[in-house]
Design a protein around this nucleic acid. Structure first.
Lengths: 209, 209
DNA sequence: TAGATTGTTAATCGATTAACAATC
DNA sequence: TAGATTGTTAATCGATTAACAATC
């Protein structure tokens, strides 16, 4: 039951369970069976039970899982109760819109700073977030104990930004740039590229009939 | 070699190959071996050769794959040469920033329209894209032959928007909302949730040491 | 109690990796 | 030619699904 032994596909699904369970709770639903959850998320009940067996929780025969308990446990496992400190590199349209997106602080991801190298944007403010020069990144990362760096620059600059984030000690990177980045062992990277997702859809449409 | 028989994990990687190969081409690299590609994308050479065996292309012993040929073939398979017509539902920060993002039209995804139900945004323009009332979606989808719908509304409205997109005949949906959506058989959905990606990173950090 | 649903083991399925003859 | 690299088959690995005794 070592948390770090949870397989990658399961880790990928855990946030989806959390979203759904939070919603059930908001609707006042107290119990959910593996079948209920499977139906809602497009999985099989078997997969749901296998997945939940990785976290510290017991369901009850005939009733299923208690939503409040399940939510609490998922929050714990996912670190959702820990406040994370995030910087965004790249104050273009995407970086700005993420800085102003209320959902992140709501869920524990505090956007501490936007970085950009363009002097004409440095000093501006989007929502509550200041744009600072990329040269001050080391200082900010240290002072504000930044955990997560978000890459929102054009693809040709992505690797350079990744290197800079790693250099200032950031060990978790969300890459929104349309480019695979290389990082040393021990640094976590998750890709989130809307362009690639669109291309997957384009492929699906092409092979439809 | 039926295109639609390509397994999902391979389909998911194809856009990544395309990005990398385009970059090699820009740098004037004419040949790339499976080992080269594997190193750049964090895969094994074996996986690369298996993946590329699904597309109509022959590598050459000792040299590898010709980048121009590989790019052309990937573009073809992914439908990258087809112009796709996209609407964005939700003219909040995220929807607006995507509408103004130059990379989409560059790669064949034309953002035709932003929809919102808030009358105070309807009529505004972000970049070159007009905001229209969500009530006119059916008409627009028909007239402009929209292929892809992008959901950028708050999670509580996501399902409703998905239903509306399906109702007007859109068969490919990119869901950016923090909620799993249900669609009928035959409609393609790809999820792209930055929040979930952040939560995966939070999990990774929590189990680090 | 009877029936529904769990937790877990075993079976299946599919993806990745290894290996190697063919070949440029 | 000798060596590198392909395409493909076979082996391994891991994830998903099925099955079922335990149990509420």
């Amino acid at each position: 039951m070592e948390a770090s032994s949870i397989p990658q596909p399961v880790i990928h699904r855990l946030p989806k369970y959390l979203v759904h369970i939070q919603e059930l709770r908001e609707d006042g639903v107290a119990w959910a069976s593996s079948q209920d959850i499977a139906d809602a998320l497009g999985l099989t009940p078997s997969t749901v039970r296998q997945d939940l067996s990785h976290i510290d929780l017991r369901g009850i025969s005939k009733k299923g899982y208690e939503t409040s308990q399940l939510e609490a446990e998922l929050r714990l496992v996912l670190g959702a109760d820990i406040r994370h400190r995030v910087v965004i590199v790249g104050a273009g349209h995407l970086g700005r819109s993420l800085a102003m997106h209320g959902a992140f602080p709501q869920r524990g991801f505090e956007i501490c700073c936007l970085f950009d190298k363009d002097p004409s944007v440095v000093g501006r403010k989007f929502g509550t977030v200041d744009v600072m020069s990329i040269d001050s990144m080391g200082e900010v990362a240290r002072d504000k104990k930044i955990d997560i760096g978000l890459i929102a620059v054009p693809s040709h600059a992505a690797q350079e930004v990744a290197d800079a984030l790693v250099a200032v000690g950031i060990r978790a990177i969300l890459n929104l740039a349309y480019k695979h980045i290389q990082v040393p062992e021990g640094v976590h990277v998750v890709d989130a590229r809307i362009m690639e997702s669109l291309q997957e859809l384009a492929f699906a449409l092409r092979n439809d009939g």
